[in-house]
């Protein structure tokens, strides 16, 4: 059985706002292929104030789908439509004190039902822009369509590229076989051949090397594991000086800091080495299950600021201790 939080169980066993709202003026019907779940959200919106006066749900689905639906109705009741539209799937997951990575799509389904119901109220047609598929990376809850889209958009060609751009595969590395299969298929489609490098992608190796470097120990000489990133794209040399780069990286962190601090977390820049940015997660970020997504956002922001590819690597407590930090 899944490791559900007490709040998930509580909202499953005692769901709030079950059933269709009477005199509903906004209805959203959505489904999630991943779990065979489906949800109908009905809203009663005050046309004067645009406040959601009542919300009800009907869900065909598993425990977390029912709990997510219940949480959604609790969150949005009393909000204006614009306030409600600002609710993210992460808000739903947070309300439930987290969902297993395999079940994050239940919260996505909740947000989509909300968008669909509000579009229905406003007489608009809601279009689903989120494609679901098989869960590839369990550490960071990354699904296949995102990986495929990212490979195509950025012409990626190695497991490390995929880890750099999507975070998929950057954790326990158990999904590397699946990522290799996706790469082989995508590369074949564009007329290339996938050639995995010898040994490990150097993502893992670099982390270790750095932790040791900072302690001034000899750098690992095990060259066999060093894989040359095959992608010729996006390898342009940075034209910025190190100080300029660090300033821009700090600027990216500053931009996201208010959001992190609102959740009682923070990120601290530790080191910048070539294309790798080492950070320390502090406060609530330390053991947050969504830290992966946070880092993803941070990395994206840094890349926008710098105009070049960088990889954000969080240093573990052990690595920081070893480095005397």
């Amino acid at each position: 059985m899944w490791d559900y939080s007490e709040t998930v169980k509580e909202h499953f066993y005692n769901p709030r706002n079950v059933g269709a709202v009477e005199e509903a003026n906004g209805v959203g019907d959505v489904g999630s292929l991943t779990c065979g779940d489906a949800l109908r959200l009905t809203l009663k919106v005050n046309p004067e104030t645009e406040i959601i006066e009542d919300a009800g749900f009907q869900t065909f689905g598993c425990g977390s789908a029912i709990a997510s639906s219940s949480a959604l109705t609790e969150i949005i009741k009393g909000k204006t439509l614009d306030e409600a539209l600002a609710v993210t799937n992460q808000d739903i997951a947070d309300f439930l004190e987290g969902l297993p990575p395999e079940k994050m799509h239940c919260s996505v389904m909740g947000r989509e039902a909300l968008q669909a119901a509000i579009a229905n109220y406003r007489g608009e047609v809601w279009e689903d822009d989120h494609e679901e598929g098989a869960l590839i990376c369990k550490c960071f809850a990354i699904e296949e369509p995102l990986i495929v889209d990212t490979i195509r958009a950025n012409n990626l060609s190695s497991v490390q590229d995929v880890a750099n751009y999507t975070k998929a595969g950057a954790g326990c590395s158990s999904c590397h076989e699946k990522i290799e299969e996706i790469l082989a298929r995508e590369l074949e489609a564009r007329g290339e051949t996938f050639t995995p490098g010898a040994g490990r992608p150097d993502l893992v190796l670099e982390r270790r090397t750095v932790a040791k470097k900072s302690k001034e120990l000899p750098v690992m000489q095990n060259g066999a594991a060093k894989e040359e990133p095959a992608a010729p794209v996006k390898k342009a040399k940075s034209k910025l000086t190190l100080v300029q780069r660090i300033q821009k990286i700090e600027k990216a962190i500053e931009a996201l800091r208010p959001a992190l601090q609102a959740d009682r977390g923070d990120v601290e820049l530790i080191d910048v080495q070539d294309k790798t940015v080492f950070v320390k997660m502090t406060g609530a970020c330390t053991d947050c299950s969504m830290a992966g997504l946070t880092l993803n956002g941070l990395q994206q922001k840094m890349m926008e600021e710098l105009g070049e590819f960088v990889q954000v690597v969080p240093l573990s407590k052990r690595q920081l201790e070893e480095a005397g930090l």
Partner: peptide
């Protein structure tokens, strides 16, 4: 069950 369940409830699938 609602009448014609497949038509009465036709969610947009992701």
């Amino acid at each position: 069950p609602v009448e014609n369940p497949d038509q009465a409830f036709e969610p947009t699938y992701a």
